[in-house]
Design a protein around this nucleic acid. Structure first.
Lengths: 357, 357
DNA sequence: TTGAAAGCGCTAACAT
DNA sequence: ATGTTAGCGCTTTCAA
């Protein structure tokens, strides 16, 4: 007799009360006599009764479930994000319904399913959201927050790193170290994150009078980044500094340069990434990178989502989280501007002498 | 007017049919006239109607949700596992409810929540399951499958790698390469995975007449592994081969040896891991390791779970998935026994000359 | 404080 | 093929 579902009626019968009384025992703040409560709880325990969350959801009209869609997991940033998300949501009494979609975003079928579950909200990480789907969410009254992506049509909330500022800092850092020939290993070109990082990097270089940026597509994959790096570094005019759109690719770039090409990093070529994922700090890579603070991003995402769940009034907004440029060993260090803060070394752009540009 | 919930009555009214007719349109295999169906579907689309999965679950008595509890995400093996799990479950029409618990297993409160959602099944990865909780699951009729852990009380299904065979292979491999002084960096001692790997490794060594195994606790964390490795390698009688309970720790061990101690790997010390996670194949590590085939493990886990969901008859079982010893550069190579298979080199224990032991 | 009654949105007999 | 009726397990007015 596995799976006998114990209902509140059975508990009620056993405790000699009504179903309502049982219900009240499991409703925080309901008025129930302590003595009745004891009897009910005892009966519940004996029977192994738990209120059915499904039935509860049906009445409440909200499921206390949040759908989370993640594009891909290989890049360590996403598991880290997911981990914090799960914890934060758990702490707030929400359940996390996980979907793995393609980076292009959830398919229509997937989307229909998600909406069918009447989730209270939706978090999309590393995926695009077509405006058609965004509209459907709005119509269904399901708040959405994008993480690590923005949309142009600014009517959907999102939380991103301050990618432009970060990428500019990388440019300044590299310039200050004396680099003049630059390469960029791009992520998926249509992603806002790549666009922001690439554009800002290029802009800052241009401000310094450097208009040539060798660009190769890495597509956010390690294989792609390896190939891109190889193409970059076997050119006659090979760059002496490469900025990769994220750490995941920067690691592959380092391996391509060091192991496949026999180059020394940073002596022959400086490599800088973005995100500061776990492996970036592994001594064998010691990647210089811009951090993308997972905790802060998750907090902001959850906060934004909760605000929109709670009230109709909460407006859509884009939150930009700043991150430090963490200096390690994969890029040549400028003479000045690197300071030790809290056990790690960071680069403060403002301390860069004007003359550097 | 965000969030207006569109019910089947409204669709019915608009299409001029009954609620049942609407329901039948969304029930595969129900008998409905094509013409009616069209009218209903049109109305549904116009109103933005989707059947409420919650209500459906309430009737069906099953939620088509599977709870997945993962102990920690830092170790790349778990994100990889989760990713496949999400896909496989999605393909079968199940939703994945994610919980992040401590390695000691889900807390009672968490457990109550999970059960409250009337999940159809439960997958626990890298967590322990107390027999009390196992009993609750049985009582509630919720099938459970452990992944990457087993319990002694063999009344709960589990899927694990063939850890004993794998660990024996590591011992033979290292012996064949001429090693005689061994170290072991342990995971959490109480985990079945660590126990199996450690015991089998030690046993095989003993069979070769080697009774000394230097052991340090790494606790499955990189910090722990680093410290353990440092202790191991700064002893006067330091080992010339170290087996780490998993890749996650082996990577930290390599860094400790090479970067902190200036040792050469594998010239000064061989390091072998377990799992074959992504970073193991990164050229900077090129970790020799035993694979723990994620796909196969997930398939087995899902299959086992589905069997138990489908029928009462399906027995609890423990599935052991074999994995190859993948030879890369972090350990000295034996003269014989390494063969290239499908783009990688693997070690076949059976080709080890008897004399080696 | 407690119980009776109504109903959340849907599907599954049972009629027709 | 379609509509009617009942009810999944629970919470929540409303009375008492």
């Amino acid at each position: 007799m596995a799976g006998r579902i114990v209902t509140s009626v059975e508990v009620a019968r056993r405790a000699g009360v009504s179903r309502s009384a049982v219900s009240r025992c499991f409703t925080p703040g309901a008025s129930i006599a302590p003595e009745t409560r004891d009897r009910v709880m005892k009966a519940a325990k004996a029977l192994g009764y738990r209120p059915n969350a499904i039935a509860r959801s049906l009445i409440a009209g909200r499921s206390r479930m949040i759908a989370v869609v993640i594009g891909y997991m290989e890049n360590q940033f996403y598991p880290a994000l997911l981990d914090r998300l799960a914890r934060d949501l758990q702490d707030l009494g929400y359940r996390l319904l996980l979907f793995t979609g393609a980076p292009e975003g959830p398919s229509d079928a997937l989307f229909a399913e998600i909406l069918g579950y009447r989730v209270d909200g939706m978090i999309l990480a590393s995926t695009l959201l077509s405006s058609a789907l965004a509209d459907e969410c709005r119509a269904a009254g399901v708040p959405v927050v994008l993480v690590n992506r923005t949309t142009d049509s600014a009517d959907v909330s999102s939380v991103v790193a301050d990618n432009r500022t970060g990428a500019r800092a990388v440019a300044e850092f590299l310039l200050a170290a004396g680099h003049r020939r630059f390469g960029y290993v791009a992520g998926i070109a249509s992603s806002s994150t790549n666009q922001d990082r690439e554009t800002a990097f290029r802009e800052r270089l241009a401000e310094a009078g450097i208009d040539t940026l060798l660009r190769e597509d890495g597509g956010y994959t390690q294989q792609g980044a390896r190939d891109a790096t190889l193409r970059l570094l076997t050119r006659p005019d090979r760059p002496d500094a490469i900025f990769c759109a994220n750490d995941h690719m920067a690691i592959a770039a380092m391996d391509a340069a060091r192991v496949e090409l026999g180059l020394r990093v940073p002596d022959d070529v400086s490599i800088v990434g973005y995100d500061d994922v776990g492996p970036a700090s592994w001594p064998s890579y010691a990647l210089t990178t811009v951090e993308q603070p997972v905790e802060a991003m998750v907090s902001a995402a959850v906060e934004t989502l909760m605000a929109r769940i709670a009230g109709e009034g909460a407006p859509e907004r884009t939150v930009r989280i700043p991150g430090e440029l963490v200096v390690r060993g994969s890029a040549r260090r400028p003479v000045e501007g690197v300071t030790a803060v809290g056990g790690r070394e960071i680069w403060r752009p403002q301390s860069l002498p004007r003359s550097a540009s």
